[in-house]
Amino acid sequence: MNAPASPPSPYSSATHNAKIESHTLSVLVDNEPGVLARVVSLFSGRGYNIESLTVAEVAHADHLSRITIVTSGAPETIDQIHHQLERLVPVRQVTDLTASKRSLERELAMIKVRGRGENRSDALQVAEAFRARVVDATTESFIFELTGRPAKIDEFVDLMRPIGLVEVSRTGVAAISRGPDPI
């Protein structure tokens, strides 16, 4: 992340030199109308970053959804985000998976690549190395499906760019903690 665009306020010069970290927060919420808007508007209203956000119902009978947010900021800011999220009435639990250091993170991407001849075989070779699957093919294009850590997907996309990258669709990060215990 770059330095903030506006000059640091004289009211709060304490944190502007702090190191910016990226953290994955797992937020368990009551699946009620507006809950996602509440979470998202908390971030926009208080000027926090969202790098990635995924949401889906995870327990239908209990009406629970899990929102996984990748955010970035100084450690104090991440701490603030954590506690601001906990303040929302429909939020049941917030876990900072990055702080717990025992998280598994995955993202799924679909990558469309266009090309003929040598580019086609190059694309297939790279895909094989990354264990990406071909889910659609024409005489002049492929769509690859790839699952992995976000950095792996970034790398794959970078390699496809000179070969003939058309576009990318990514799900954002889903995350869970390792071991037998729940998040």
């Binding site: 709060s12 104090e76 603030q80 506690h83 601001q84 906990e86």
Partner: peptide, 8 residues
Amino acid sequence: DRSSINKN
């Protein structure tokens, strides 16, 4: 309010 702590 836990979020008031260490905010400023």
